[in-house]
Write a protein that binds this DNA or RNA. Structure first.
Length: 752
DNA sequence: ATAGGGTTAG
């Protein structure tokens, strides 16, 4: 049967010269297999006889000086003669002689010598060495060599002890070397000679062929040959079927061949669940229109060796899942974790929590990993309180959090909670007996830096040094960021030096942070100096670095150069993102070039970049400031018509413009729209409108907005009250003035 | 077999 599978292409017998290293000035020029035409009966030539004589008289053949001097003069034929003769008398000497030639003279022996040694090793059950010798031979011969090697084995070694073992090992070695056709050929020969192949050889072949239909031929062959199967055999078949997306076949195979506790089943369940999950997610993303994410996920899937289904097989996936559940197949805890982690990555934490409960109700025990995945997911979604509840729950269950868990919580607290909350948790971590983690410090230092508390940041740095913890480049980057935020650029540069002093390397982030600060300070020359140092140190600029430079160029009105840099980015594959474009669009708006601004917006779409809400805010503001307000209105409406996501800023931008330019009715309408959309309205938003109305003495409208604001439950502040009082006074509206004064007294904004 | 983390640009 196996012969049928593989039709041999004509074999070209390859002449291979074998070389001793040139220092020994001897070439073996005989083709490898034809060199085999010797037997132990051939009359040995002189050096051969001499060495063999020495061997029979001396125990230590290779310590013998005259043997040593003879070796470099031997040719391939003579080596074969020695090994064959030694092998008959004293196998150990033959093996030692072979290793000596190989290790000290770089000579591997002819195929005959290798097979002789192979048989001797097989006889001594030194199977690993046997495999190595054969693998080396196959490595030298390459694929397609099975017929010639088989022929040699067949003609010259048929009667040798351990010949069966060598055949089997030859097939195994071919299979392991991924020369599958050769392995099949050897197997076919073995079958012809009625030599039983071992299950190891079969499994290896099965594994190599598991993604082809030939797998079944091998499988049938195993069954027919009566070779006892190993536990691995079925797992390989299942793995292969899953890899070929033949899930129904896999189920059928399991039902026929496996109990419910088997390894093959586990292999299957995990595979299927991951696959079903991926497909459901991809399907969902396609429907939601996030093709990019869907494609990303498909890549991810293929990287994990899972073939995605063509769209439409999702239903099948679900049915399969149900079928499996109805048959009493159970997910194990790890399969649940895989599922949970994928859901969390997609932001479907609620779904993940539901699964956690399902898991618990089926009697499975979530472990520290399960909990960490969930806690991390919750923190990423900003649901830190939920995460902390879960964290407490795992303590109650005596499942102890590890560094994964702690980092997630600290990061969540520092992002969503208050700084002092994060600090309390940080202190509790550093006070406990845990191994201290530089990442905890980095998180806190960055947070302090961000809010301008450089002193606290530096104190933490000093703690790091006192405790003997090694700071990372990120530590210094965050400190530099802090000094930049506090506009202490000279000190920021000092810390750049600290990186080097600690034997660390400044990164793109280091340089970009500094460059941005210099740019903000208007020191474009300084920015370019840092950029030159970055280049000199061969630190690759990122798209962020380029964006900063573009910002700098724009500041100096070097708009053409900034556009050129945009091209450079495209050319270098450092693709500009929406922030790059926003920066540029902002610059062109400022330069009152709305045409170019919109052209850049279109270019974004061409490059498949989704303009962000910020992009629209910039463009809207540009239209409000530079153009006709009607243009701004039209643009705004068209965005609304296309259901494009807008932020509150889009509304307030337009509202402010209408207030300032006098169309208060329009402003009023927009304001109500904004409220209806459910945006949270603050005193700043009301103040922005009221301020502008007061400036124009439109006190009637001021009273409308004041009323709206109070009924919205927003309390007054002193500043806006004085603005209104002045306006009421200017227009002579005494009643309103006194009413407002009374309100202020009530709120404690004025001493009565 | 199952998990991740800190820093830069509008």
């Amino acid at each position: 049967m196996l012969n049928r599978i593989y039709q041999w292409r004509p074999i070209r017998f390859r002449l291979k010269s074998q070389f001793l290293t040139p220092t020994f000035s001897l070439l073996f020029t005989k083709p490898s297999v034809s060199a085999a035409n010797i037997t132990s009966d051939d009359e040995p030539s002189d050096p051969v006889r001499e060495i063999l004589n020495k061997a029979s008289t001396s125990k230590d053949l290779f310590g013998n000086h005259s043997v040593r001097t003879l070796i470099p003069t031997l040719n391939s034929l003579q080596v074969d003669q020695i090994i064959v003769n030694l092998g008959l008398e004293d196998p150990d000497s033959a093996i030692d002689f072979f290793y000596l030639l190989r290790n000290e003279y770089g000579f591997c022996g002819s195929r005959v010598s290798q097979f002789v040694i192979g048989h001797l090793l097989a006889g001594k059950r030194r199977l690993k060495e046997l495999r190595t010798v054969l693998e080396q031979m196959l490595h030298e011969e390459g694929s397609g060599s099975a017929p010639s090697l088989s022929e040699l084995l067949e003609n010259r070694f048929r009667a040798w002890d351990s010949n069966d073992l060598v055949w089997d090992m030859l097939a195994f070695a071919y299979s392991r070397s991924e020369m599958v056709h050769d392995a099949l050929f050897v197997l076919a020969k073995m079958k012809y000679f009625k030599i039983q192949a071992s299950i190891l050889t079969y499994n290896s072949l099965l594994y190599n062929l598991r993604h082809t239909h030939i797998m079944w031929d091998v499988y049938e062959e195993i069954k027919a040959s009566g070779t006892p199967q190993s536990a691995q055999t079925n797992s390989i078949v299942i793995d292969g079927l899953c890899g070929q997306s033949l899930l129904q076949e896999a189920v059928a195979f399991l039902q026929e061949n496996e109990g419910k506790e088997s390894k093959a089943l586990h292999c299957f369940i995990q595979y299927t669940y991951v696959k079903v999950l991926y497909n459901v997610l991809i399907h969902g993303l396609c429907i939601a229109g996030s093709m990019e994410e869907a494609l990303e996920l498909t890549d991810d899937m293929e990287r994990h060796g899972v073939q995605p289904d063509v769209a439409g097989n999702i239903e099948e996936g679900f049915m399969l899942q149900e079928e499996m559940l109805s048959q009493g197949f159970q997910l194990n805890d790890i399969a649940y974790s895989v599922l949970l982690s994928s859901l969390c990555k997609r932001g479907q934490v609620g779904e993940a929590l539901r699964l956690l409960h399902e898991m618990e109700s089926t009697g499975l025990k979530p472990d520290v990993i399960t909990y960490s995945i969930l806690i991390h997911g919750l923190c990423k979604q900003g649901e830190v309180q939920e995460a902390i509840q879960l964290y407490n729950k795992m303590w109650l269950k005596r499942i102890f959090p590890n560094s994964f868990t702690h980092n997630a919580i600290l990061l969540g607290l520092s992002e969503k909670g208050t700084l002092s909350e994060a600090r309390m948790f940080f202190d509790s971590l550093t006070k406990s007996d845990l191994m201290e983690n530089i990442v905890w410090f980095n998180i806190m230092i960055y947070r302090y830096a961000k809010v301008g508390k450089v002193r606290e940041a530096v104190q933490l740095y000093e703690q790091i040094i006192e405790k003997g913890i090694t700071p990372s480049t990120v530590t210094f980057n965050s400190l530099i960021y802090g000094f930049c935020k506090s506009r202490k650029l000279a000190e920021a540069r000092t810390w750049l030096g600290m990186i080097k002093a600690h034997g660390l390397v400044p990164t793109d982030v280091t340089y970009t942070t500094l460059m941005n600060a210099l740019c903000e300070a208007g020191n474009i020359r300084g920015m370019f100096e840092v950029f030159r140092e970055m280049e000199a140190r061969a630190v690759e600029p990122t798209n962020i670095t380029y964006t900063v430079i573009i910002k700098g160029l724009c500041k100096q009105q070097r708009l053409q150069e900034s556009l050129q840099l945009l091209e450079v980015m495209h050319a270098k594959g450092r693709s500009p993102d929406e922030i790059t474009y926003n920066t540029l669009i902002h610059c062109f708006c400022k330069a009152r070039d709305m045409r170019k601004a919109f052209q850049l917006h279109n270019e974004m779409l061409l490059h498949n970049l989704q303009p962000s809400p910020v992009t629209y805010n910039i463009l809207l503001n540009g239209l409000c400031v530079n153009g006709d307000l009607n243009d701004a209105d039209r643009f705004f409406s068209s965005l609304q018509d296309q259901n494009i996501r807008l932020t509150k800023v889009a509304y307030t931008t337009l509202i402010k413009a209408h207030c300032a330019k006098g169309d208060v009715c329009k402003a009023d309408t927009l304001f109500r729209q904004m409220v209806e959309k459910g945006f949270e309205i603050s005193i700043t938003d009301y103040s922005a409108v009221i301020n502008r109305l007061c400036k124009k003495n439109l006190t009637i409208k001021v009273k409308v907005f004041l009323h709206m604001m109070l009924s919205d439950g927003i309390s007054l502040d002193q500043q806006i009250c004085f603005v209104m009082l002045n306006a009421f006074r200017r227009v002579g509206d005494l009643t309103s003035e006194f009413e407002l004064l009374a309100k202020m007294i009530k709120c404690g904004l004025l001493p009565d």
